Computed example of a mutant assay.
Amino acid sequence: MGWISAGAYEVALDDGGKVICRNAKGRQLKTVPPKIADDPAVVGLRQLTEWLDRHQRECLATVERWMIRSLPVPTAALVALWPDTAWQAALRDLVITDTDGTVAGYLRDADGVRGLGLVDLDGDSVRISPDRVRVPHPVLLDDLDELRDFATELDLRQGVQQLHREVFRRTTEDPRASSVDTYAGGVYQRFRFLAGRAVSHGYRVRGGQAVLSVVEDGRTIEARMWLGDAGYDEAETGPLGWTTEDGTALTLGDVGPVAWSEGMRMAADLYAGRDIKSSEERA
């Protein structure tokens, strides 16, 4: 972006989106002078920066939703979005599959004529033109470790955490049980600390529980972890369970791999912020 007049100065955005200023002699100043802080050009650039930040976050959040739901995405949509640098940053280097779940490669480009540009699993640059692809949740990738290693070799950098997202797979838990207590017993000195951590990490707090909704195979499932009563100072992470959208409890055997992984990820996240000394004394 070029320089814009602002009174006796000129302003612009640097590569990091910060408003910069230079005087009439062309010398760049350390800060924007207070006397032009309300100049329409300065205000407009700052509003543009805020919008770009929001847009970037929205792009990342949208692609993450595609991944968590493993939704089929029309190739035409990727082609239309690709010229936008914020969308491109969110999409580049993601592992994509066909609609049957077969890994196609790492996404590098999307073109209306040539199709999707990928690095395939042999390290070759290829082009494909399917009608739709998927951005799979990493728990659904059988060769996740190999895909991670190969991405590291290729120096690929994902905007959306896919390959290096922490995943949890169900192991020896009783499929007839209704909850797991792997991350129960994490003590917080104040309920608001625990609730605040949940909200800041993107989880809802409702009825004394942290709640995460996951849509898997067309069905909405809620992972729920007990946090405590807001009327009490101290709080403690409780068991983790899963329910249908209307609150009907599910047995562990009825929980799909994505809902399981994301629920356990939430529980581990909240447990990690515990007061370690208090938790050890309570154990």
Rank of each mutant, 00 (worst) to 15 (best):
A89K: 05
M67H: 01
K277S: 09
F150V: 06
R108K: 10
L156R: 08
A80T: 11
A8P: 06
A86Q: 06
K18A: 15
L227F: 07
A151I: 04
S279T: 13
D229H: 11
I36C: 01
H137Q: 09
D217V: 09
E146I: 07
Y188Q: 07
Y271K: 08
G256R: 07
C21T: 02
V79D: 09
K18N: 15
M67G: 02
G228C: 03
R108G: 09
G2D: 12
T220G: 09
W82T: 06
E58P: 01
P40E: 11
D229W: 12
T97C: 11
G218V: 00
L94A: 01
V139N: 08
R224G: 04
L91Q: 00
W260C: 06
E166A: 02
M266Y: 02
V42R: 10
T97Q: 05
V160T: 02
V160A: 04
G241S: 14
R169I: 04
T251G: 13
I20E: 08
R65Y: 01
L45K: 07
E173G: 03
R92T: 08
L240T: 03
G101M: 01
R157C: 06
T237M: 06
D15N: 14
L144H: 11
D174A: 07
E146G: 14
E245I: 14
E64M: 06
G123Y: 11
R46L: 12
L94T: 00
D122Q: 12
Y271W: 14
R204D: 10
L147E: 02
G231Q: 05
G247Q: 12
H164Y: 11
D14A: 14
L94W: 00
A77Q: 15
L13M: 14
W82R: 08
A272L: 10
G256D: 09
R176Y: 11
V32W: 03
D254H: 13
E166H: 04
R204E: 08
T220E: 13
V139S: 11
D246N: 14
G115P: 05
A249P: 15
W260M: 07
D155W: 12
L154G: 06
